[in-house]
Amino acid sequence: MKTINLTDLKNYNCALIEEYLEMHPAVLYEIIIPWEQHESPGTDHLSCMFQYINAAYAGQLLSLSSLSFGYNVPSPCQCTPFRFEIELPVANQLPQTLLTITEAYFTHEDAMVEFSVQAAQYYDDAFNGITHSNTWGLLLMADKMLPNIW
């Protein structure tokens, strides 16, 4: 299994991600999205909620082109990274997906806003039965945080 921490790809474009994947060929990948650190880990419920929603959407994007898919649901008290395991028939769809997620998390503020809007829509659609979700654990954790916000 090849581990890819998105932090390592933050200055890559799609061509560089493709080159990186060609240099490290694999069928099984572990994709790591770091937890965004705040001054008081685990106490900023709104930020935590959005981190779970964004991670759920990122995981959903990763799952769409994978043969098998798994993920962890980190504790908001520990601030450990989000981890996704995917098995791909071929890595050809992975570069664009990784670029979309990486740009949203690290490089473009406009991309993060757009990604967060899409993630919020995914959250709503999943709970309303419009979208089939592969990341219910992350969505439920985000939903658990709502009573602490309002």
Rank of each mutant, 00 (worst) to 15 (best):
W136H: 12
I53T: 04
Q78G: 03
Q60I: 01
Y29F: 15
T43N: 09
E39K: 13
N128W: 09
M1G: 15
S75T: 10
S133V: 01
E30F: 00
S75N: 14
G70N: 14
Y122N: 04
S116A: 15
D44S: 11
E103N: 15
Q121V: 05
Y29P: 03
N54R: 12
A126L: 04
M112I: 00
E30T: 15
E18T: 13
L88C: 11
L88P: 03
P76L: 12
S66P: 08
L21N: 03
E36P: 00
G137I: 00
S116R: 06
L61W: 01
Q96W: 01
L88I: 06
V27N: 13
Y123E: 00
G70Q: 11
D44T: 06
E109S: 11
L62N: 01
Y122L: 05
Q96N: 11
F82G: 07
H24Y: 13
G59L: 04
P81V: 06
A120T: 13
F115I: 05
P95F: 00
E85P: 00
Y105Q: 08
L67C: 06
T131Q: 13
G59Y: 03
T7Y: 14
Q118H: 10
V117L: 13
N134R: 09
A15I: 07
L88R: 08
I4H: 04
I31C: 03
S63H: 07
Q51H: 01
Y20I: 00
M141D: 06
D44F: 09
P74S: 10
Y105G: 01
S47H: 11
L94I: 08
L94T: 11
E109H: 12
E103Q: 15
W136N: 10
E22T: 08
D8E: 15
A91G: 00
A120S: 14
F50Y: 15
A15E: 13
A119C: 08
A142G: 08
Y52C: 11
M112E: 12
H45E: 09
Y57R: 02
A126N: 05
L62E: 01
M1H: 11
P34Q: 11
P81D: 15
M49C: 14
C14G: 02
C77A: 15
D44A: 12
L138S: 06
T43C: 06
K10R: 15
F127E: 04
L64Y: 04
S116N: 03
Q37G: 02
M141R: 13
I149G: 09
T107I: 02
I31Q: 02
I33T: 08
Y57N: 01
A119N: 07
A56P: 06
I17T: 12
V117W: 08
I130V: 14
H108F: 09
P25Y: 10
E85A: 08
G59D: 05
V90D: 10
N11V: 07
A120K: 11
Y12T: 02
F106H: 13
L146E: 12
T80C: 00
Q93K: 10
T100A: 10
I53P: 08
H38C: 11
M145Y: 01
F127D: 03
P76H: 14
D124C: 05
C79K: 07
Y29G: 05
V117K: 14
E114V: 05
C48V: 05
Y52D: 08
I53K: 05
C48G: 04
T80M: 05
F115Y: 09
M23Q: 14
N128T: 13
S68Q: 14
S133I: 02
G59R: 02
N5A: 14
M145K: 06
V90I: 08
L16T: 07
S68W: 04
S65P: 00
W150D: 13
L99W: 06
